[in-house]
Each structure stands twice: as structure tokens, then as C-alpha cells.
């Protein structure tokens, strides 16, 4: 998780990743941040995030993004 937090902070430095609740629905994580997060995850973990995984539930918190990355790495 620590490694992921570093990647997320690099991708969207202005976002407070410790906030509880839905980062997307509360407008904390905007579309530009999400594109940046996807780019960073793609290069940091050498994964492709398929269109089917591009849904709010997978980006609503740092934990959700962590779970997504783990799932894609396991595949």
C-alpha cells in the first residue's frame, strides 16, 4: 500500500488521499486526476487498465485503487 500511495501522490499531488468517503462523488478526484492516476499506474506497475475496469467503484478511494491494481497484477 505504501508503494501505491507514492504513485498516487505523484499522479495527483493536490488530492488528500486519506479522506474517507467517495473521492469521486465528493468531487475531490476530478477527471484530470483520474487520467493522471491511470497513466502513473500503467507505467509504475506495467499493467493495462481495461475499459471494463474504468468505473467509479474502482477509483473511489486509495484502497479501491489498491484492490484494482492487485487484481490486475494477479491476472
Amino acid at each position: 500500500m505504501d508503494g501505491l500511495m507514492q504513485v498516487l501522490k505523484l499522479a495527483a499531488p493536490k488530492v488528500d488521499w486519506s479522506v474517507e468517503g467517495n473521492l469521486v462523488e465528493e468531487g475531490i478526484l476530478d477527471s484530470v486526476d483520474i487520467i493522471s492516476v491511470v497513466s502513473e499506474l500503467t507505467s509504475a506497475y506495467d499493467i493495462e487498465i481495461p475499459a471494463e475496469e474504468m468505473e467509479i467503484e474502482n477509483f473511489c478511494s486509495a484502497q479501491a485503487i489498491y484492490d484494482l491494481v492487485q487484481r490486475l497484477l494477479d491476472e
Binding site: 477527471s31 483520474i34 487520467i35 475496469e53 474504468m54 468505473e55
Partner: peptide, 9 residues
């Protein structure tokens, strides 16, 4: 918006 592509599709 179009970010959540799964929903768009």
C-alpha cells in the same frame, strides 16, 4: 463525462 468508460459503453 467520459472517464468512467464502462458506464459509457
Amino acid at each position: 463525462g467520459v472517464i468512467f468508460v464502462k458506464q459509457i459503453f
